[in-house]
Design a protein around this nucleic acid. Sequence first.
DNA 1: AGTATAAGCGGAGGCGACTCCGTTTATGCA
DNA 2: TGCATAAACGGAGTCGCCTCCGCTTATACT
Lengths: 192, 192
Amino acid sequence: MTVTERPLRADAQRNRDRLLAAATEAFAAEGEDAALESVAARAGVGIGTLYRHFPNRDALVVAAYQHEVDALCAAAADLLAGQPADEALRAWTRRFADYIATKRRMGNALRSAAASDSPVFATTREQIVGALRLLLDAGAASGTLRGDVDPRDVIRVIHGIWYLPEGPQWREDVGRMLELVIDGLRYGVPAR
Amino acid sequence: MTVTERPLRADAQRNRDRLLAAATEAFAAEGEDAALESVAARAGVGIGTLYRHFPNRDALVVAAYQHEVDALCAAAADLLAGQPADEALRAWTRRFADYIATKRRMGNALRSAAASDSPVFATTREQIVGALRLLLDAGAASGTLRGDVDPRDVIRVIHGIWYLPEGPQWREDVGRMLELVIDGLRYGVPAR
DNA sequence: AGTATAAGCGGAGGCGACTCCGTTTATGCA
DNA sequence: TGCATAAACGGAGTCGCCTCCGCTTATACT
């Protein structure tokens, strides 16, 4: 395995980022089979540039998804920096809901792209678990959250929002579900 | 399930047949990603006609494959009509080798098309087993072939030719393999 | 600062999938 | 045999994927 990849030239990096953002945007706005030309247009680059960065549709979809996951995970640390762990956790779960919404919008595009690059989901799952663990550990350390839960189980629970029926009430349903979960993670579960 | 499909108009049926033949021909000659326009051209029909009969690439590939299988199976009865069962079996296995060669040439096209219509292989397998059973039963009845073999096992054995390395010697290798199998099915296995 | 050059850009253009619709024709009926 | 019409034809046209290559520019080196 030879690695040593020299960093991208500044303009290339900028375009790459724009393309990833444009891709998620386009999939959300135009559906999963948005034309790649339209992604390039949104990003303000030529179609050639898109293809240099992502050799085919699947590569772009997977990369856009990975980008979302990275952002979600980075958010965990950011949120912790500015508030107590239980509040950070609450905020992060809302962020998680956004991520799920995006993932849903990618729909089939993601499903079929993932088929050609199967380990994606396994990896991203680990990343997300890691981010959540960060939050839980911080909460346990500061005494605001229980210290005896496995982030894997929490993910399993909140991932349930994936299956909530779509519609205008979705976000609200998600809100209630997440509150419930967070209450369960706090110290001093309310007596019934 | 409403069925009652009225038979195709004569010209439609003719074109359909031509298209199927052209498809196998084109996949053999131009590789698995032959342009559908070229299939239509070979068949001497317009591209519109192709699409009326087969709504997309996968449908055409699957249909062409199915067509091959039908022909292979029909051959069993035809061969039996003109010669003793053991000779018919010998001839049929040669025909089977042609079928495998064609199937190989369809390669990925078939693999991915089958993915979107998964029961194809299960069905065709049964068809082929049925055809072989016809030959074996005839042989058993007339006393030229053993009566105690399951066609499924025979298919498993001769399907091995699928894995023979490609090359100019392929057909010869196949020939020897098949002779061996047929000898095993005859009455009176040669003493060693 | 000036320059060489590797890295990157971008869009015209090729190609193929698939659609649309005006034209043709097989077929059933009088 | 002639006619009405549903069925089928076919190819021009649209659209999107992807490539190719001449031009631009960031970067490293002097």
